[in-house]
């Protein structure tokens, strides 16, 4: 590991611990302030967006190539056939910050969105869908032959 990075991580963690100890922020506040985009693991990011319980659903279709040549531009579409779809969120498990983005689907809009994402390496891609107040999830693996983080 890179030395300066380690230092930054230590001091960053130290700062939060210090603020907690000094009573400046309560643990609850520290949690509320962290937004899902900064989460470092898939489980944390998914929990931040969609709560602890998600049902695997085959009514969610992830439209993406099985093998993508260029990780900097990977076309990914999500189609939800679940009635009452109100939110679609997209995650790349092995990205440094798994949450790519979320889409709010008002009534009248079809549960079908497409975009292009960056992927650092071969990874499972997850689509999380909120429909009728409940959360559903689907996944698909996309193989990357060239990484996307070098720009």
């Amino acid at each position: 590991m890179n030395h300066s990075r380690r230092k930054a991580i230590q001091s960053g963690g130290g700062l939060i611990a210090m603020l907690l100890a000094a009573g400046v922020i309560s643990p609850g506040e520290a949690l509320a302030q962290s937004d899902p985009f900064t989460m470092k693991t898939l489980a944390e990011a998914m929990r931040a967006v969609g709560g602890p319980n998600q049902t695997v659903s085959d009514a969610i279709i992830i439209k993406a190539p099985a093998i993508a040549e260029n990780g900097a531009v990977v076309p990914v579409g999500v189609e939800s056939k679940l009635p009452g779809t109100e939110l679609i969120a997209l995650f790349v498990e092995k990205n440094p910050q798994p949450l790519v983005g979320s889409f709010g689907i008002p009534s009248g809009t079809v549960g079908n969105v497409s975009t292009r994402v960056k992927m650092g390496q071969t990874s499972d891609v997850y689509a999380l869908v909120k429909a009728d107040g409940r959360f559903y999830v689907a996944k698909k693996e996309i193989k990357i032959t060239l990484g996307g983080c070098g720009g």
Binding site: F103, I105, T109, S114
Partner: peptide, 17 residues
């Protein structure tokens, strides 16, 4: 449509809905 994005959306973003 509303969208909330992070930096992992590709350069010159494409959006279809």
């Amino acid at each position: 449509l509303t969208a909330l994005w992070g930096p992992a959306v590709a350069k010159n973003p494409y959006l279809e809905f």
